[in-house]
Design a binder for these strands. Structure first.
Lengths: 231, 231
DNA sequence: GACCGGGATTAGACGGATCTAAACCTTAAG
DNA sequence: CTTAAGGTTTAGATCCGTCTAATCCCGGTC
């Protein structure tokens, strides 16, 4: 049986290996999970022994198909929980992450099923992250362009917010920069700041590049499904 | 910080020390938690060191007030979760126990608060067990008489079902022997069997003494609050 | 008042997850 | 080609929760 810790490591690798084909560095895993590198190394040995990751010493690891399936299951739990907590229990958009991080390891298949059913099989969570299907098919985690790449005058829709800092999320929520929001890029300042105007508000909001890089945007089509607007 | 395991032990002691003033035997704790006696002994040392139990070697343990508070918190989580799973997620009356047993250790205070609020601060869970208040005041866990003590002709109301076996619970649920049900004792057979007629049904049901001893009953007054009828 | 049976505890070990300190690759710079 | 830097792994230790085997206490029996 897989421990909650192992699931955490697999999820971390999943998060880190997106986009690039490169092996994931031990130190990045260690940093993400807030453990020391030797700890991560030893866990990588364990996971490799179990066939959940492919490991090349001194290089890093990649999830095997089995490892990816486990990661997808955990990610499905996490994103379903985030959606559930937001929609049914009235959690703040910004506050769901920690709760989901703990519960994701402890819910049964039945719980997962009932929650999914109650939410009508959502495909996206409140942050705009795609929710893996019940079949755990690989998910396209690439999200196109970010707000940091936009030019002045662009009109875009927020698709996904990958920031995880609760305070920053609370600020963005308050400002209205949540998935589904349409906005116009007003200014791209050379000091590393982007200012946008909300299409359905009269406010304009400025965000530093670091945050703008976590906000993925698209054009009009393909609206964010399910996941109704957070309080 | 307290581990989930420690919480399990404290809850087990809580369950075992009800009624009697006697210290709780190591072997009983071990049996309830399905570990060997030495394991329980060593955990009792740990808990005693932390001031959560009072221990007398070769005699057993009792919860200290601090230990009882922790136990009550866990019990509150457990019973709130059972109620929530039944009422909001459509779980079967019989199936909630295992899920609650895992989740009880991993929900935040905020989760507890929101669930309690959503359920309108229930005072009893679906099995008729009292839910400790938010203030964690000691709870009266004594439940009066059981069906096994009734005489033929008695008319009683089911108050609480302390059976925990999912199959048995499912059967009782199906038969209608759930908290709130009014019934008449038809026969007390000398072979260790009680037969009752459901007041609002046309069926009569027989249960062996072992099960009858887990079904607590009362007379008309003081109806089971909250916890609407399970599906 | 000695003995015996049964439950309780001690002794010793193990696997999981973590740490620090030391040794080790890899790589890029000189 | 040599070497220094930086990340990676090995070595060795700790703590938790658990086990088995052996020893120990307690209460009742003769």
């Amino acid at each position: 049986m897989l421990s909650a810790k192992m699931e955490d490591y697999l999820k971390a690798i999943y998060e880190l290996q997106r986009e690039s084909e490169e092996p994931v560095a031990t130190s990045h895993i260690a940093e993400l999970l807030d453990v020391t590198p030797p700890t991560a190394t030893s866990m990588m040995e364990t996971l490799a022994d179990r066939g959940l990751v492919e490991r090349e010493k001194y290089k890093g690891v990649r999830l095997t198909p089995e490892g990816e399936t486990v990661a997808l299951e955990v990610v499905r739990h996490h994103r379903l929980l985030e959606t559930y907590l937001t929609e049914e229990l009235g959690y703040d958009w910004a506050a769901v992450h920690d709760e989901a991080d703990r519960l994701e390891h402890h819910i049964s298949e039945e719980f997962e099923r009932r929650v999914a059913e109650m939410l009508d099989d959502p495909t996206v969570d409140p942050h705009g992250d795609p929710i893996p299907t019940d079949a755990l098919d690989p998910v396209d985690e690439s999200s196109g362009t970010t707000l940091a790449e936009c030019a002045e005058g662009d009109t875009v829709v927020v698709r996904r917010v990958r920031d995880r800092d609760p305070d920053e999320l609370a600020y963005l929520d308050d400002a209205g920069l949540t998935p589904g929001t349409e906005l116009v890029v007003e200014e791209v300042a050379p000091i590393g700041m982007v200012t946008v105007a909300l299409a359905d508000g009269d406010q304009s909001v400025s965000v530093p590049d670091a945050v703008a890089r976590t906000i993925f945007v698209g054009t009009g089509e393909e609206p964010t499904e399910s996941a109704s607007e957070p309080a």
